[in-house]
């Protein structure tokens, strides 16, 4: 009843003005986001559609296509080395994620907890954190060159020179140890990428908590285990999810360190896609392989939506204009 009385009071002009005000409020965000929509539609959405279409064609170097139905997909399931590739990918994902997360927890606990907080050597803590940031800041091509350079043949490889100096024979690192090198280098670079995230999480621990634990007689290591590490739970979850995804889709590092070799022994699923696109120029087949990778990454994305609670991270604007 109140509502209708209210409506009667407002004449048509005010109603249109109300509606206009609401429209004005809707239009502004879209204008602000327009520059984002254009490149993303052209360079992400369109390629996704293209990929889907191409996966049903036999497109090759000439960019001409014939539709061949599900042949590409059949070929994927018929590829004899696929199980090896998948096992290798799994090894890389699990190995790198574990190594990098554990490694960066170790570095951050020492630099931020022990050096900064326990021993109050802030400058030393900062210095070592910066050292540990270096791999992440270095362009991949340089980072991987350094690794090739270190483990290169006897002429110039540092490790082999050192082995020679103590009288040991040189090793063919890139022939016999390529997967291990890949694991080591990629997890170092990825550990470097989580230093800042983890260390800022430790800094958010209120000092009073650490102080009162000390007053209660807790040792530094006990505080570290029972107070500091629980604070890292959220960043570790975040980093682990991203690391799984990152390692699953990584191809640049493999291309630069081992090139998939020797004899295809470091080819992962992502690198296999890359090879089909750029070495064998079998675009249709590559697109079909990509479809599975996209499905996997969308699944990961959906898991992240759940874990990160994206809905809750959107705050209601405190204004109606």
């Amino acid at each position: 009843m109140d509502q209708s009385a209210d409506l009667l009071l407002k004449d048509r002009a005010t109603l249109t003005a109300d509606r206009k005000a609401i429209k004005r409020k809707q239009r502004f965000p879209f204008l602000m986001m327009l520059p984002f929509f254009v490149p993303v539609i052209v360079f992400v959405v369109v390629p996704i559609i293209l990929m889907l279409v191409m996966s049903f064609t036999d497109m090759k170097f000439t960019l001409k296509w014939n539709f061949i139905g599900f042949d590409n997909y059949r070929r994927i399931f018929g590829y004899p080395d696929m199980s090896k590739i998948l096992a290798r990918t799994l090894l890389l994902v699990v190995g790198n994620t574990t190594l990098s997360v554990l490694g960066s927890i170790f570095v951050v606990v020492i630099t931020t907890y022990y050096l900064d907080i326990v021993y109050r050597r802030k400058n030393l803590g900062l210095l070592f954190r910066i050292i540990w940031l270096i791999p992440n800041l270095t362009p991949t091509i340089v980072f991987m060159f350094i690794w090739r350079f270190m483990f290169g043949p006897e002429g110039y490889g540092m490790i082999n020179k050192m082995l020679a100096a103590i009288g040991l024979p040189a090793m063919n690192w890139f022939t016999n140890w390529s997967m291990q090198l890949l694991l080591a280098s990629m997890s170092l670079s990825s550990a470097s990428g989580s230093i800042i995230l983890f260390s800022s999480a430790i800094r958010q621990i209120p000092e009073s908590i650490v102080q009162s634990a000390k007053v209660d007689g807790a040792g530094n290591f006990y505080i570290c285990r029972r107070i500091v590490l629980p604070y890292l739970r959220w960043p570790i979850t975040q980093k682990t999810l991203w690391s799984i995804l990152g390692n699953f889709t990584a191809y640049e590092s493999i291309r630069l360190l081992t090139g998939g070799g020797p004899m295809g022994s470091t080819v992962t699923y992502a690198y296999y896609i890359y090879q089909n696109a750029y070495q064998y120029h079998t675009y249709g087949y590559g697109a079909a392989l990509s479809v599975f990778m996209v499905l996997m990454s969308i699944t990961m994305g959906l898991i992240m939506l759940r874990v990160f609670q994206v809905d809750k991270q959107l705050r209601v604007p405190r204004m109606d204009i």
Binding site: V40, V44, P47, M51, N276, V291, S297, I298, V310
Partner: peptide, 24 residues
């Protein structure tokens, strides 16, 4: 929806789009 899309797009693998990029 937009927020969710951003996360999913952020998780989107570059390597999967390489073949389409060539064509595009």
């Amino acid at each position: 929806l937009m927020a969710k899309l951003l996360i999913v797009l952020d998780a989107f693998p570059q390597v999967a789009l390489l073949t389409s990029f060539i064509m595009l």
